[in-house]
Amino acid sequence: MGEVIVVTSGKGGVGKTTTTANVGTGLAKLDKKVVLIDTDIGLRNLDVVLGLENRIVYNLVDVIEGNCRIKQALIKDKRYPNLYLLPSAQTRDKSAVTPEEMKLLCEQLKGEFDYIIMDCPAGIEQGFKNAIAGADRALVVTTPEVSAVRDADRIIGLLEANEMKKTELIVNRLRIDMVNRGDMMSSDDVVEILAIDLIGIVPDDEKIVVSTNNGEPLVGDESLAGQAYMNICRRICGEDVPFLDLNAKKGFFARLFKKN
């Protein structure tokens, strides 16, 4: 039986879609069969981040309304044979889907896939309720900023109230130079405030912008963000992976000495 994971945050623009794309691709690289569902109806995004925007025929609302079979709407990623996308509808709104329908869809997909990952819209209204309805596990994404952490706290409270079995935190866009100067909260600070389990720290990395430009998730490459995302995937699978040392120097001499 597959596991349904919702990626959520409350606040917009903290990296939910990027996280969904990278975690999904990473799990597929680890030989898991994965389907990503964009639940942000009316604001379709996950398809462009994955580079699959030109291949959409049917969408989530078509599946819910019975205009097509689930299999017809799933887009198979040519680069990773285990990875599929169920895109969102661009011309409808959140009321086109109910939490009960999402739950049913998740149950149907669980038999077929190892991981079903939902990209949740920002906010705490209908779209959020739809996205969490069928989920077994939640990844709460935040950045080390007061607004994002406050919204994450609210989301964690709502997930608890909805009896989410497992809720874990991803601290995104951490800038270690600013943390060292005392100008950014550290991941420890954020964990202390929110008091939930940490599953990943993703450093702020220009390569994320480049990878989104190209529609190619960078999970698993040599960049710090790529490594951080792959570590999150391994932890999702139950592996005990230590957190990256973001203070490690990248200079030539530092590398030379480290290898010896």
């Binding site: 900023e145 100008d183 600070d189 405030i193």
Partner: peptide, 8 residues
């Protein structure tokens, strides 16, 4: 006081 402590 550092701004991160203020934020916290």
């Amino acid at each position: 006081p550092s701004s991160s402590n203020t934020a916290k």
